[in-house]
């Protein structure tokens, strides 16, 4: 299957659409049914994080998602254009420190827990999150 690209403005309402598209293409690409919930959640987390970052830094700029079948893997890359220096939160849990800023780090933690393979590329020009899952069934028509 050829690469599918999706661009959407930084509105929370569009995140659900992005989830639905990613899940549909994952299914078509041959990702196992048991993994589709993980794809849906991980893509939703990446898009939610991007929307929040754009709303804070560049609300007029679009967010880009690339979905492709790459050598038997379903690969999703979510790219934003908001400057980022976020790091993964790995401290032990304490309710007192669960501030809103701490919770914003949960999105990437959730993605890391869900995707089979994840790479996060933060930069001053935006963050790129690439994640992939096995697509064992090859190329359904």
């Amino acid at each position: 299957m050829a690469t599918v690209e999706l661009m959407f403005s930084a509105l929370p309402a569009h995140v659900r659409t992005a989830r639905l598209v990613a899940t549909a293409i994952a299914r078509r690409t041959g990702v196992e049914e048991s993994l589709l919930d993980e794809v849906r959640l991980a893509v939703g987390e990446a898009c939610s994080r991007a929307v929040e970052a754009h709303r804070a830094h560049c609300p007029g700029e679009p967010i880009r998602i690339e979905l492709k079948d790459d050598s038997g893997r379903f690969e999703v890359t979510v790219s934003d254009q908001a400057p980022s220096d976020e790091i993964k939160q790995e401290q032990p849990l304490d309710l007192g420190m669960l501030s809103d800023s701490f919770m914003s780090g949960f999105g990437i933690a959730v993605i890391a827990g869900l995707a089979d393979d994840v790479e996060v590329f933060p930069s001053p020009k935006g963050m790129r999150i690439r994640m992939s899952w096995p697509a064992a069934n090859g190329h359904p028509s």
């Binding site: 849906r40 959640l41 939703g44 987390e45 939610s48 309710l95 669960l98 919770m103 914003s104 959730v110």
Partner: peptide, 19 residues
């Protein structure tokens, strides 16, 4: 049907308020 980290944040916020 679906819960993401935004929803978790809301539940944690609620917990902090009631505590």
């Amino acid at each position: 049907d679906f819960l993401d980290s935004t929803g978790l944040g809301v539940l944690v916020g609620g917990l902090k308020r009631v505590r």
